[in-house]
Amino acid sequence: MTNPSLLIVRDLHVSVEGKAILKGVNLTVNAGEVHALMGPNGSGKSTLSFCLMGHPKYHVTSGQILYLGQDMAALPPNERAAAGIFLAFQYPTAIPGVTIANFLRAALRGVRGQDVPVKEFRQIVKANLNALGIAESFMSRYVNDGFSGGEKKRLEILQMAVLAPQLAVLDETDSGLDIDALKTVAEGINALRAPERGLLLITHYQRILNYLTPDVVHVLVNGRVARSGGPELAHELEAKGYETFRDQETVTPVAS
């Protein structure tokens, strides 16, 4: 018996406010694998990540998202989270007035489908704060409210660590981090790696891939995966940029 792939994105077409952004994305992430998704600004990387999470503004016009063999189309974001999908946002949303402690408690309750005893919750939080080198006073701050860029990214990783998802999609979690923070974040991600888990890492930079060697690298250009390859592809992109892909795109005939 073979387990279904962790994630299969099949010929996914997505539009936002009537504008087509993803134009047939295909992608398979198996358990235990790390995939990197790279691509120029505006190519649709965040759009794909929002679709995986079920953002109501992003309309899947055709194609499929299968998670552990199950079609996600009808599932609201919270049920996808409960099923084990996690998205670290490129631009995390501020929720003024809601403390991180209350927020994490509600999240854990949602993912587990039942209340988490206070004592256990404290233990989980404490262990993860320590591992990520975050002060406990952080817990009484309001979610992303007035946070620096780096603090926001750390909070995303803290949430991921607390929720321990099976599929984590990290949208540029490495951007805007100083070298030490990048290392801590990479360690946080590594700590979560396991044979049954998978990781989709959206990034512009090779440097995070030095810590988390990807099994597969995809290049998303203009709403399509233009190329997939091994870790060497990331190095190639770092050296040459996306010029060659842009040229390919321009020769592709586009219906006007």
Binding site: M53, G54, T93, A94, A107, G110
Partner: peptide, 12 residues
């Protein structure tokens, strides 16, 4: 804001 919270497992 609602989406962010829901993406963490919190029902609407």
């Amino acid at each position: 804001q609602t989406f962010y919270l829901m993406s963490r497992g919190v029902p609407r």
